[in-house]
Amino acid sequence: MSEITVRGLTEDEWETYRSVRLAALEESPEAFAATLAEEQGYDEDLWRLRMRRSQRLLAEDADGNAVGVASVGHAEDAPERVAELFGLWVRPQARGTGVATQLVQAGADTARAQGRSHLAYWVGTDNGAAVAFASGFGFRPTDSRRPMRVSNGADEDEIAMVLPLGDDRGVPTLA
């Protein structure tokens, strides 16, 4: 894979985010709580609101083609010092090339720049690859669990994994 850059998107780049988000929902519908049909119906005002609510990160190849996306925001039920990484997706042809690692690193850098002390990432307890990826990056499992937001018919839970971003190595409690 060619050189990859990750950058934060501005509100005015809502159409870029929309395009990549819809591609993610189409290619990996099982990975997201939302549906392609639902998000295709969102108007510009809603997309702009989403851009203001969280920092959207875009991974691009040397030709400027979008190859991945992730978001960093704050979950309502989390302590203020904890940012949340969510919506991580990499185009199939770019998987296994380090794009996800670069997106997570950019997410950690973004959260740190926002003054957050930890980055949380919810992972399906039965998704061994995702748990291994997060663990390899330095995320640590917590006692926080919730029902899987994406239902595949199984009774699966998600676990909050947390990455300390500074000197505070403790693991905050998440709802």
Rank of each mutant, 00 (worst) to 15 (best):
D77N: 15
W14Y: 10
V90F: 09
H74C: 07
L103Q: 09
V67K: 04
L58E: 01
E80T: 09
G68I: 06
R146M: 14
F32Y: 11
W89F: 04
S19E: 15
P141D: 13
D157F: 06
V99M: 09
A66P: 05
R149F: 05
T97I: 02
Q102K: 15
V171C: 03
G96L: 12
G96T: 00
E27Q: 13
E11V: 06
Q105C: 10
D109R: 07
T10Y: 10
V67S: 03
G107Q: 07
A37M: 12
G8D: 10
R112Q: 14
A175V: 10
A33L: 13
V104E: 00
A59G: 08
F139R: 04
E38P: 00
V90I: 06
W89E: 02
S2W: 07
G73W: 04
D12C: 05
A66V: 04
F133E: 02
R112I: 05
G107P: 01
P79L: 09
G128C: 04
D126F: 01
S151N: 15
A62Q: 08
S151Y: 09
R91N: 01
A94C: 06
T173Y: 06
T97Q: 15
I4D: 03
R95F: 06
G73L: 02
E27W: 07
L85W: 09
G115N: 06
G153V: 03
R18M: 05
G128N: 00
T10S: 15
M1F: 12
L88N: 04
N127H: 11
F86T: 00
V123R: 04
P172C: 11
S19R: 14
A111S: 00
Q102E: 12
G115R: 06
M148N: 15
A120G: 04
V69K: 05
Q55P: 09
V171L: 15
A24G: 03
A24W: 00
W47N: 05
A24Y: 03
T173I: 13
L174Y: 05
G166I: 03
A31L: 14
A154R: 14
Y42N: 03
P141M: 10
A175P: 07
S54V: 07
S71L: 12
